[in-house]
Design a protein around this nucleic acid. Sequence first.
DNA 1: CACTATTTATTCCAGCCGTGAATTAAATGC
DNA 2: GCATTTAATTCACGGCTGGAATAAATAGTG
Lengths: 409, 409
Amino acid sequence: MQKTSIIRSDDLRNENRRRVLDTLRNEGPCTPSRLGSLTGLSAASISTLSSQMIDQGILGSERYQIDREKPLRGRPRSLLSLSPEAGHVLTLTLTIDLIRVQLVDYSGTVCDSHQEIVDTRRLNVEQLLATICQCIDIVRRQHPDSPLLHIGVGFQGQTEHASGKLLWSPIIRERNVPLGDTLQRRYAVSVSVHNDCRLISQALSRRQVDVLGNNFATVLFGHGVGLGLYLNGQPFAGTRSSAMEIGHLRFQSEGALCRCGRRGCIEAYAADYGIERLAGNMPVDTPPAGRVAESTMQTLRTAAESGDKAAMQAFETAGIAIGEGLTNVFTLLDPIPVALVGCSERSFALMRAGICSALDAHLVNGPAAESLLHCFEHDDPLLMQGLADNSLSAADRLLATKNPVSNAI
Amino acid sequence: MQKTSIIRSDDLRNENRRRVLDTLRNEGPCTPSRLGSLTGLSAASISTLSSQMIDQGILGSERYQIDREKPLRGRPRSLLSLSPEAGHVLTLTLTIDLIRVQLVDYSGTVCDSHQEIVDTRRLNVEQLLATICQCIDIVRRQHPDSPLLHIGVGFQGQTEHASGKLLWSPIIRERNVPLGDTLQRRYAVSVSVHNDCRLISQALSRRQVDVLGNNFATVLFGHGVGLGLYLNGQPFAGTRSSAMEIGHLRFQSEGALCRCGRRGCIEAYAADYGIERLAGNMPVDTPPAGRVAESTMQTLRTAAESGDKAAMQAFETAGIAIGEGLTNVFTLLDPIPVALVGCSERSFALMRAGICSALDAHLVNGPAAESLLHCFEHDDPLLMQGLADNSLSAADRLLATKNPVSNAI
DNA sequence: CACTATTTATTCCAGCCGTGAATTAAATGC
DNA sequence: GCATTTAATTCACGGCTGGAATAAATAGTG
């Protein structure tokens, strides 16, 4: 009936183990007493749980290093931390021209990586999967004895979360690529497949709580426009797929031609190809460019900054399109802070007027639009952090259930 | 940190008590063995839990009545059921001209009610609150000895769920009416305030699972257009308020004047006043009519059915507006079934083409739009059921935590 | 250098929880 | 009246947690 089925006392222990791991993951190494107050568990329980997990090799314990001048009296505290030796997780990122694999130990340190430059769109499914497995094997071969706890995949496109299928992605022509299943079978380990925007949201939710809070939206600028939502401190996605396709909300009926074949989508105005098309005074039904080079965007930005009317208007229109999209989200979910990711201060300066005018028209009695917007220029580090976070959380859940007592029965 | 904080063994008991009550609420009276298989608890636990709750007066137990010709051998089964004597919940519905109060016993039977016809818009906040309390007192006086477990309020408008404030409602001119707080203080009981659309969703989620499933949207037609979402079997709302204002998504930029003061909202085309305006060939910036009589809508429907071009087009445009709104929802959340509530077969016939054309343009590789749509003509019975369900669930949660053992400490 | 004060971690114990096996309860059939 | 059948309850057991008591480790003090 319910997803969380904590019925038996054993489940309780697993849940509390998970809670301890989760807290250490979020807060870093903790003393047992601090861990107790953070989790709400008694010192006695923490002691039992932690000593068991130390025996299992999941946690490590060391003496608390005092770097203060005046050392404290009393028994010195110990420091519990996630043990790097508990195992590894493997992260895989797919972009249009790059396959990248990282091996991250259980404490969160990246300890190996490998990447190959490939034009993924030239590959068929078999070739793509084979190349991916090759990359994984190369990295995996370096650490053959450490158990592999999870594989996490991040990429741009639409995923089906239950199966880990790539429903659609710009990186490969074919649809419904069974990536999750394939990896799961081949490496006999749980696999999660998420789109880039969700993973970036996850990274922000950990690292920018004070700015963004528990409810926020992430807009990712790139070759398309992506949306990720965090609600009540949890990632939120479609019922079946990753969904959240803000880029394909309607902005102008009978408007510009979008990559998806429809007309008037937000993306057709706010993605790089849309801006290029408008700035170049091309007709709005010009087929979308396959890929726009970063240098082209630089040129357009410089043009707009130095007063080129068409370029300026292209960026403002992009802003209005984004603003209208966010207005729709706000209408359904209430106004929430928005992280604009992959958006430099320069780009933001060009789009700000557009975004704010669209939003402020909606937020008549609400907060000023600008107070809700936060720019984060570099998306790639956030993606990598989010992917590692996500995979390590999966590892936490796995190890939490490996309760030796109840398994022994 | 987390909302569900099942840490101690006591919490476990409370959770399992809640689970038993929930199951009885959903499935009706059950034998202990059936209750065990539905909840996943052992027969021994069911026995302990139920006998304790019988002692508390929460459950009743009676002999299973066999109406078969051939009686079964063996010890006869008993039947556990929610006891009507455990207490009452009180439901309050506010509409533009009616205040209605019902008293529902814990088993779900309506045992008393009172209503007063009032033009609520003529009242100020104090007068409205006073009238409401009067109605409640009249009903409450009939059953002075039964404990009042919860008050549930349903109305059209926007609510803030944390405080139970009416942020905005067509039934009263003033904003931020502190209804929830007032009732909570006066009657010393927990109060929940929800908008009509959410409550109707809740009723549908119980009574139409086979048709609508675990994920569906509810569109409520009336003087405005409301939206309710059920995702993963749970009601979904805004982060702060009820939100879900599908009626105020943009349909046409610089379009028809909406009741909210903006232009081009879906509601300005799909609500009764929007349809009347279009069918009557009035300019789209005609200020919205305060209230459209049901007889007027009947006349318009008849006109459209007998071929009146303007009326036909008004209904089709309403359909397109609704369809566009749902397209936006589908773009963010994946396509899901939609319950059209307060929409007769006649109205649906007039809007169907519009709704489906807008949706099918979006669902190119997906299911046919029409297969997702389900009409429910009468909204009022659903609202009352949803409100009772909601309040009784709150009572379940309250009684589940009244575990006499752990409270005795 | 021994001893005390102080702070922190661990261990022990009592009480509660849910389960499974055994037991009791309550009806029918012969 | 007794065996049979089926359902519900009881009881012993291991698990879990929290609080009290105990152990551990260090700084200060004389």
